[in-house]
Design a protein around this nucleic acid. Structure first.
Length: 334
DNA sequence: AAGGAGTTCAACCGCCGGTAC
DNA sequence: TGTACCGGCGGTTGAACTCCT
């Protein structure tokens, strides 16, 4: 038996919302709340709309503190980093960007940021290595601290993309990203998200709630709302209640839930992002394969999501390799 | 000025997981 | 335990807008 439709499709209005409808919905929710039942809401509010449509309109457009307009470089960085870590989990990404909705971020990624990223990567990738080194160096603000010096393998075939990959991606933009972090083990990898963080570095900015402590990644402090429901009770918000998610064993099932999410849900990312060992080969392989397609003759921007994720990580590795302070390591790669 | 191509973004669709019964 | 309902999510669509020729 099929699922009953959430509303009477024949009697609901579709398409763009009129100002009158917006006003009705806003007024009703501000006075009555959603009542925990979106399906019943339109009838109560006097709207000929599907409950889902009302919910979407409220969350993506009408609710207070929605931020519209240009995304900042910080926001770009956060989106890129999180995308590379967890993929298209837009609601989770949105939870880290107060005022932004998952729909906004998704649209922004698909229409602008992906191209922006490709625009940064392709000019590099399509050049010969010597040229690429120059272009890449232009993308690196020299005022930022240099990457931690996790040793690279002496063999090109076992080149290691270390934990600096996100850091270097971030450095491709113009402003510092914001973490406070304490040292991670050189050899261990805790969660994929932790690969964003660098030992003994402290930054300031919009992600104060995001910390690494004793190799555990922690989320704390004031909640940031995503579009999930406007009330911050999404997956990430659980951590605002004091949970910690990390590499160690624990008995908290909810904690384990997200930990598993971070571990299993991004298994593939982890293969790409971890600091050493086999996973690094994945990065190298990914880059090598892409390299074959990107140098002269390939001007395609038509990447799949996994490819883009690889590009994000490999570009970061690439940036690391091209770091002007690490010319010797450049030579190792080529 | 016109119209075709490309871009943006609000909104829809359908699936999934949680939960009440 | 099974079923139905609902909220939430990510992918996709298409109208409106902008750019280009």
């Amino acid at each position: 038996m099929g699922r009953a439709p959430c509303c009477d499709k024949a009697n609901v209005k579709k398409g763009p919302w009129s100002p009158e409808e917006d006003a009705k919905l806003k007024e009703y929710i501000e006075k009555q709340g959603t009542g925990g039942n979106w399906i019943a809401l339109p009838q109560k509010a006097g709207l000929k709309r599907c409950g889902k449509s009302c919910r979407l309109r409220w969350l993506n457009y009408l609710r207070p503190n929605i931020k519209h307009g240009e995304f900042s470089d910080d926001e770009d960085r956060i989106i890129c980093s999180l995308y590379a870590n967890i993929g298209s989990r837009w609601s989770i990404i949105a939870a880290q960007l107060p005022g932004r909705t998952d729909n906004d971020i998704k649209n922004y990624w698909n229409t602008k940021l992906k191209k922006k990223l490709m625009g940064m990567i392709n000019p590099i990738a399509q050049r010969k290595p010597q040229q690429a080194a120059h272009v890449s160096s232009l993308l690196q603000p020299t005022s930022l601290p240099s990457s931690p010096s996790t040793p690279l393998s002496s063999s090109p075939s076992s080149f290691a993309c270390n934990n600096s990959n996100y850091y270097n991606l971030a450095r491709s933009f113009t402003e510092p990203i914001s973490f406070s972090a304490t040292p991670l083990s050189n050899s261990s990898f805790t969660t994929s998200a932790s690969s964003m963080l660098q030992p003994q570095e402290t930054f300031v900015g919009p992600m104060q709630n995001y910390q690494v402590k004793d190799s555990l990644i922690m989320f704390g402090g004031e909640a940031s709302c995503s579009s999930s429901d406007g009330s911050c009770n999404n997956q990430m918000s659980h951590v605002n209640e004091g949970y910690e998610y990390g590499g160690g064993a624990n008995n908290n099932t909810e904690q384990m839930g997200l930990q598993n999410y971070l571990y299993n849900g991004v298994e593939e990312d982890r293969r790409l992002m971890v600091s050493s060992g086999e996973a690094a080969h994945g990065v190298l392989n990914g880059w090598t394969e892409k390299q074959n397609g990107l140098w002269p003759g390939d001007n395609s921007l038509d990447y799949g999501l996994e490819e883009i994720k690889q590009l994000i990580s490999t570009d970061s590795c690439n940036s690391f390799l091209f770091d002007e302070n690490k010319s010797g390591e450049k030579a190792m790669y080529y």
